[in-house]
Design a protein around this nucleic acid. Structure first.
Lengths: 174, 174
DNA sequence: ATTTTTGCAGAATGAAGTTCAGCAACAAGA
DNA sequence: TCTTGTTGCTGAACTTCATTCTGCAAAAAT
């Protein structure tokens, strides 16, 4: 048999939990995904083919979503970053979502708990362009109100890291 | 001569504005940075070495900040995502910043204009861990108040794209 | 204890990345 | 206008890396 006999696999089959070595590999690849398997293996204490095998598994399992070139927003003219809180009516929410997804300047859409409904991360080339986006938002049925937070400067911006952050002190068990 | 005779180079020397071909290359590399130069060239209409040359320039100029493996937060146990607004006193701000940067669960720190001072993007393994982080924040001198928006679900999450979004209609010139 | 599976090392193959030499288009200057 | 220098490209060469395969050893299951 080559595959699982029972093909009841979830969307992202964990296939096994990540061990310490997987995390080390991820750590290196997050920093620089162009690292050769030779160096990769050397860094974590594995032979090149072994490293290759594990990375392949990490890709298959979905732990590595994609390998991407991270580009400088300034270099492509996206000088303005803003977070936009959106309040939607009853549940024109789904409708609004579909419309917002079409906007190329929207990088992230989250549904949040708190005094607002949705949270957008948005990049534009200018304040004018942001105004344009907001205008489009207000024209979207289901959108009740928005509140924008324009970023003055970014102090930290790091990708998702592997490695556990640990639990807070005193966890009380039932 | 091999290098520039005048070594007066800025941090990120634009070295020339990006043309349409550069943007196309970036577009491909953002989607999949493992694309071979052969295919890369084919996609944009260039020979492999030419594509290589341009990509090398994009890296040197800083337009490509890094090539990174994007990892699934769920896969490494970071199941909770939250945005935290932080209000700081007078200007204990700098002090607070330094402390916050040390927290590994903080992915982004922005200084924003609006009814709050700083905006944090935070990933933790649990609500407990978030509570722990907030506790640490409150213990930080200079931190006056925080407001958290816990993400219920993420609908869109895309990396920085090249390509211009255009200007909003009617730009009134002086 | 035996069988099966899993993961790794080492060597071989194939396919990239990378460099080089030569050429064409363009810009600056005489 | 002709010259000179620069820039960016192609095609071929060379080198390095990715990838596959065989065999082995340790762990898991029976």
């Amino acid at each position: 048999m080559d595959q699982n006999t029972d093909d009841v696999r979830r969307k992202r089959p964990p296939e096994r939990d990540l061990d310490a070595m997987d995390r080390k590999l991820l750590g290196v690849l997050v920093e620089d995904a162009t690292t050769s398997y030779a160096e990769l293996g050397e860094r974590v204490g594995l032979s090149p083919p072994a490293a290759h095998e594990r990375v392949k598994r990490l890709r298959r399992s979905g732990a590595i979503r994609r390998v991407s070139a991270l580009i400088d927003p300034e270099a492509v003219g996206k000088t303005l970053l803003a977070f936009v809180h959106v309040d939607t009516t009853g549940w024109g929410k789904t409708q609004a979502l579909l419309a917002i997804e079409e906007c190329p300047e929207v990088e992230e859409i989250h549904s949040v708990a708190g005094d607002t409904c949705m949270l957008l991360k948005v990049r534009t080339e200018s304040t004018h362009a942001l105004e344009g986006l907001l205008a489009r938002l207000y024209d979207t049925p289901g959108v009740k109100a928005t509140r924008s937070y324009v970023v003055l400067s970014t102090y930290l911006e790091r990708p998702v890291q592997p490695g556990t952050t640990g639990d807070w002190p005193a966890v009380v068990k039932g």
